[in-house]
Write a protein that binds this DNA or RNA. Sequence first.
DNA 1: ATAGGGTTAG
Length: 606
Amino acid sequence: MFAARLGSSNSKPATTARHLHQIHAFVIKTKLLPSPTLPMLSPKLVASASENLSHVCHILKHLENPDLCLDLCNSIVRTLSSTCKISSNGNHLISLQALVLFQEMLVNGVVPDNYTVPHVLKACAQSRALGEGMQLHAYSIKSGFLLSNVYVKNTLMRLYAVCGLVNSVEAVFAEGCNRDLVSWTTLIQCYVKMGFPREGVMAFFDMCNAKQKADEMTVVVVLSACSRLGDLSVGRKLHGYIRDNGVNSDVFVGNALIDMYLNCGDADPARKIFDEMPVRNVVSWNSLISGLAHQGEFKEALKMFQKMQRTGLEPDNITLVGVLNSCANLGLLEFGKWVHAYIDKNHIEADGYIGNVLVDMYAKCGSIEAAYRVFQGMKQKDVYSFTAIIVGLAMHGEAKRALEIFSEMPKMGIKPDEVTFIGVLTACSHAGLVVEGKNFFRDMECVYSLRPQTEHYGCMVDLFGRAGFIDEAEKFIKNMPIEPDASVWGALLGACKIHGKVELGEGVMKKLLKVEPDRDGAYVLMSNLYSSANKWRDAVKLRKAMKEKNMKKTPGCSSIEIDGVVYEFRKGDKSNRKSKEIYKLLEGIRSLLNSSFGTDDCIILI
DNA sequence: ATAGGGTTAG
């Protein structure tokens, strides 16, 4: 029966583990694997070999000419490396199996060829099997493959890159001189992914100096480095490089260009590229929508989302993150709720990125209880989830709840970061918890090894200042190890305003103007301080000076959302279609208020 | 037969 199956060219290929057992038994009996057997090992059997590796290894042991099995071994290793997915458990075993088979090959005299080692290395990279990969690194040096076969070099670099070992990637890259475009791209990509985009760009220039021409994949990676750096000048150079060197502007290149231009603050070319793309996919839309949101162009981002929907293209999680982020910043609760309903309807889990941005959206739109419900329902809470709800609760004056949730973090094994402490300190500040705030500030460095930034110092000055401890606030600024910035002086000036400290305020205003000379913040705060101290003449003088200096105004803007349409209102803005009626109504309210309370009690700015 | 690509928060 075995002989029939193994010998006859008419028999069906072996497909199951049972067939493998039969071959195994036959080989043990005859010490021979008839050559027609090899083509009969179907892909399905090769796949099942991952679960029956011991049989394969035994077969190898019993063969008279094991080297005939090189192709079989290569295809088993290839199958192992292409089937193992990155998952929590079991994957390590698969790469281990690839390595076991590889060792058996060596022991039994199957000489690996150019394809074997890259396949085994790929299996290691996919399952992050660093230890096994390092053994292969040693083998590659000894056998000479590392220097003779650029695929070995590149797959080894890839393994170290996915394990985050930048130094090892550099070392393998630098070894010998057999590097090609893939080696360069892998190196640059590794720099960018590990948070060193500057090094990535420099490596690209090195590559150009080495007379190596880039292709689509390389420019995409370098563009992403420019995007992360916000380096428009290098980004533009790269755009020129693409045109001059005949790099094919495929959809990947187009998307990377859109992302680069938007993150570098130049929206026009991004839109132009988007409009002129012959093929667009969901990533093109995502790059545009999240890029616009990143630029603060939230309304534009939402407009593009609506346009995307008209094309019938389904948004994915990344689209929705950009959309919810825009809703959050515009305060569009109804729009945000609609997205939440869309998420539920499409069975997308309100977890991870999506959950976090939902929490933030509800908190920023004033619906703190909805934010809390989403937070509670999340299974995978991380530092972003906790920070979003803590900052949200702090902004809503719910200091006690914010601090309670903060105290949950260590129990869940989640370490707070710098932004979490902004929320914690804001909570303390709003609730007047001076002692607690001081303790948290101290813990930041002592317990969590987080170096406080100027924003944290600003929170502390705000905390002391609001509570009336102006002297302590001043002392605190004097002892700062870093240069105080606008957030710090602004907090102190705010405290002067609350407590009517005119003279101190005048000095603080000068300091604030030094670090922020072309913004109107200092003037506005100070003139308010004068007004509240009844120094009207000084207030008017300051307002006049402000007008003359043509300063950058912090835009005061309110918006409402009616039936999905956003209406924005700015001070003095008459662009609304119904502005005449609106102003007439406002005039009515004003005169009503005046007759009820008198002008001194109520000032409405229109 | 084998290697390198873009978009996501507080």
